[in-house]
Simulated assay, not measured.
Amino acid sequence: MKTVGAYEAKTHLTQLLECVAKGEKITITKHGVPVAILQPADSSKRMPVREVIDQLKRFRSGRRLDGLSIRDMIEEGRR
């Protein structure tokens, strides 16, 4: 497992993420003490895009804005 300091991790984050995407784990240290581990995301938790779209459509069905406009909701959020 590769180890990098916090400053180096901040400076080279893009390159570190490329390594992680290839399956590598990277420990980030601060003053020599491990504080975080970058590792690939658990791909088993990812849902197929089609399934996500179907879930969104099911959630949306039967829900209406009852005359509210997007502008009204934006203004309400600003209060």
Rank of each mutant, 00 (worst) to 15 (best):
M1D: 08
M1F: 05
T3W: 07
T3M: 13
T3S: 08
V4R: 00
V4Q: 01
G5H: 09
G5C: 06
G5E: 07
A6T: 08
Y7G: 02
Y7E: 12
Y7K: 15
A9W: 03
T11L: 10
T11S: 12
L13T: 03
T14D: 14
T14Y: 15
T14G: 08
L16Y: 07
L16C: 09
L17P: 08
C19Y: 12
C19A: 13
V20W: 03
V20H: 07
V20D: 00
A21N: 05
A21V: 02
A21Y: 13
K22P: 05
E24L: 09
E24K: 04
K25W: 00
I26W: 00
T27P: 01
T27M: 05
I28Q: 00
T29N: 13
K30P: 01
K30S: 07
H31W: 08
H31C: 09
G32K: 08
V35F: 01
V35G: 03
A36N: 08
I37R: 03
L38N: 02
L38M: 01
Q39I: 01
P40V: 01
P40S: 08
A41C: 04
S44L: 05
S44G: 08
K45E: 13
K45A: 10
K45L: 13
K45Y: 15
R46Y: 14
R46V: 08
M47K: 12
M47A: 13
P48N: 05
V49Y: 13
V49M: 14
R50I: 04
R50Q: 13
E51W: 03
E51I: 02
V52W: 10
I53R: 13
D54Q: 14
D54I: 12
K57W: 10
K57S: 08
K57A: 11
R58D: 07
R58T: 04
R58Y: 14
F59S: 03
G62P: 01
R63I: 02
R63M: 04
R63V: 07
R64S: 13
R64E: 11
L65R: 12
D66I: 11
G67M: 04
G67A: 08
L68V: 08
S69K: 11
S69A: 07
S69C: 04
S69T: 11
I70P: 02
I70V: 05
I70S: 10
R71T: 05
D72K: 09
M73P: 09
I74D: 06
I74W: 10
I74Y: 06
E76K: 04
E76I: 12
R79N: 07
R79A: 05
R79M: 15
